[in-house]
Amino acid sequence: MRDTVMPNNIPYAISRYSAEELKDALKKMYLIRKFEEGAEDSYMRGLIHGTMHLSIGQEASAVGSCMSLTDDDKITSTHRGHGHCVAKGADLSRMFAEFFGKESGYCKGRGGSMHIADPSKGNLGANGIVGGGLPIAVGAALSAKRLGTGAVTICFFGDGANNEGAFHEALNMAKVWNLPVVFVCENNKYGMSTSTERSTAVKNISDRAVAYAMPGVTVDGNDFSAVTEAVDAAVERARKGEGPSLVENVTYRWRGHSKSDRNRYRTKEEIADWQSRDPIVAMAKLLVDHKISTEDEVAEIEADATRIIEEAIAFATEGDNPKIEEVTRDVYTKGAAA
């Protein structure tokens, strides 16, 4: 793991970002946590159907990775994508409305948990197929290069996707064409129930970067500053035309893979150990220690996030269901075909 403390003992993120940006980042991390908790609670209360993949415990990776992106920059996301969506600037009310399957949701109730995204913020979509977003991200980077937009694409994927063929094909093409894309692997240790130790031939997923002649680095994905330092450097390389990079954020999902998970493949002790390394607690401490925020301000940020989520749930609850007679709308761009 990379040592993220600068020579003068100022962590990278503190020296790189303004107080406002850092407080906003903390707020986004709280929003992700509370969105996920609200989603889980809604499920428990029978307010939604289907399943969900919660990213509680992975908030520093989502928010830290997107810190240097603008709305013109793109991301592709995964089935565990709520956090990426928040990090890329989505509106929480429309997110919750989508989660509730409402017409006022981002996908008008057609996509649900696994597809929530705000394309106007550069989010090209969450994806229900493991590895599905990898080639799409390369395509977005190809557009940016060909059209000269200067945009960078971050491709989020999990440890599970690193064993898909799409991973190999996408990283190879990204390097062959020297495209402005950053592959951010969120290694949360398990592809559903199968650990990386049992599924992956290399110790670190970033070790695979050498096969594509691109820089690869593994960082503590629960350390906001470590994530921003690694991903920002990769984004900077991409923006300067120096091609793709692979960053591995090692993190952990506190919840099961989805709602059917009985956690039979890991121990309570392991979960508790990772919970003791809560990325939000660490981020709050970082801001307090460096006098970016007081503890009271942190509490205010958290309360603000709580309020936003409550409003989002109310907005979603009040929203209209999509009309059944409009179910085939948007299959095609111009009216229905076939």
Partner: peptide, 22 residues
């Protein structure tokens, strides 16, 4: 553009490029 022999990746790059302006 000659692509590598990567039908899955190649098709996906085309999809991503089509979504973003090409």
């Amino acid at each position: 553009m000659d692509t590598p022999i990567s039908e899955l990746g190649g098709a996906g790059v085309a999809v991503g490029a089509a979504m973003t302006g090409l």
